[in-house]
Amino acid sequence: MRKILVVTGTRSEYGLLYWTMKRINEDNELELQLIVTGNHLVSEYGYTVETIKKDGFKIDEEIDMMVNSNKKSGIAKSMGLELIQMAQTFDKLKPDLMLILGDRYEIFIAATCAMIMNIPIAHMNGGESTEGAIDEQMRHAITKMAHIHFPGAEYYKERIIKMGEEPWRVFNVGQAGIENIKRLKLLNRKQLEDELNIKLDKKIFIITYHPVTLDVENIGQQVDNLLEAVKRFDAIYIFTYPNADFGSEIIINKIKKFVKENSNANIFYNLGQKIYLSLLKYADVMIGNSSSGIIESPIFKLPVVNIGDRQKGRLRNNNIIDTRYTHDSIYNGIYKALFNKEFKNKLKDLQNIYGDGLTSQKIVDVIKNIRLDKKLIFKRLTY
């Protein structure tokens, strides 16, 4: 029986891993091992380790590695703590293969540790680009450490191959977020109101703004501009928490102050996949700089106002309105999303570029059947 180790550090990443983890867990030829770390173990971010437990997954190790700090060095120190504990856990669990997703520093450390310890790495969502975030470098570094690649689109598959990865290692499995939408039974509007305890009787704005890690000095002004632009519209504002990156505390404090001063504004640590995706179904516009706006929103034909450079470089559909960080640019983007007839007509013909929703099945088929031998571990460039 192959032992497949999954490492997860954030709520959004766990949501994308869920169906693959479930399929591994139910397969008679595979054993799921699970390490939970990062934001999952932080109360300020909803302590989402409890969600994982409620979903029925057995957690083999909880690695608490977050260093509380307002300095950039806090993240680097957290990474050091994680690496030590990760190595100890790998020694204990002895996985046959590690499956990870994305580009965050928690996952970068997991990949680094597995590479040093000669544990094969399967990586989801490689080949993408987010030029405004340090995640860009993390993702490509993980790609060069990984032995099996599960990109979310054909374009990303070709990009990984152009990075020198051997084609036989690269499998286009589509985006896991599409599978979530297709397999979850979403809430109707009344159920959604009951879950949120909010009367959704106005236009609905769902807003997620993460730190732009390569431009942290201007985060305060960026958030001020966003909030001033949003406030000019009569709507229900639903904010979700940013990632725990340097600068997130500034964003959270400003949003909390805004929520306190505006009765139609709400902020949530963790909505969970069903509530979050149901919100996308009924929202009038999504605002911010989250990858969810790029990947999941097109399924709902939802207009997205994408602010700044954080998602620059990703494949995108015609529902995306890119804006600068200025108040006027953000306001004009929201206005276009809500009232521009030509733009709204284009949404009717949106085509999904991110797969057929069979991601977990495709991944499990590969990790069950691929040979875990020296050919897999010994990588060579194919330039």
Rank of each mutant, 00 (worst) to 15 (best):
Tyr14Asp: 03
Gly177Asn: 01
Ile63Arg: 06
Lys190Pro: 01
Ile320Trp: 10
Ser297Arg: 01
Lys22Tyr: 03
Leu81Asp: 01
Ser78His: 09
Thr382Pro: 00
Glu179Ala: 10
Ile52His: 02
Ile330Pro: 00
Ile299Arg: 06
Asp103Arg: 00
Asn125Cys: 12
Pro303His: 04
Tyr269Glu: 13
Met21His: 03
Met163Arg: 06
Ile251Gln: 03
Lys54Met: 03
Leu32Ser: 04
Lys144Val: 02
Lys254Gln: 15
Ile181Gly: 11
Ile75Ser: 15
Ile275Val: 11
Val364Cys: 10
Ala235Val: 04
Gln351Phe: 12
Leu97Thr: 03
Thr37Leu: 02
Met98Gln: 07
Lys301Asn: 13
Asn289Ala: 05
Pro151Arg: 12
Asn266Met: 05
Leu41Asp: 07
Asp224Lys: 15
Val366Leu: 06
Arg314Gln: 05
Arg104Ile: 14
Gln175Trp: 14
Gly38Glu: 09
Lys185Thr: 14
Pro120Met: 10
Asn197Lys: 14
Phe57Gly: 06
Ile251Lys: 07
Gly80Met: 09
Lys202Thr: 08
Glu296Thr: 06
Lys281Asn: 11
Asn289Cys: 05
Val173Thr: 11
Gln85Tyr: 10
Glu261Lys: 14
Ile353His: 09
Ala176Cys: 09
Leu83Gly: 05
Gly164Ser: 03
Gln137Asp: 11
Ile287Ser: 02
Asn319Met: 02
Leu5Val: 04
Gly102Thr: 05
Met145Ile: 06
Ile198His: 08
Ala337Ile: 05
Gly56Phe: 11
Ser43Met: 03
Asp284Val: 00
Ile4Thr: 08
Thr323Arg: 07
Lys312Trp: 06
Asn264Ala: 06
Asn289Gln: 01
Gln273Thr: 09
Pro298Glu: 04
Asp309Ser: 13
Pro298Arg: 02
Thr130Ile: 10
Ala229Gly: 05
Thr323Phe: 07
Ile287His: 01
Thr240Trp: 10
Asp194Met: 13
Phe246Tyr: 14
Met86Asp: 04
Asn180Pro: 08
Ile267Tyr: 09
Arg159Thr: 05
Leu200Pro: 10
Gly46Ser: 06
Thr323Lys: 07
Asp91Val: 01
Asn332Trp: 08
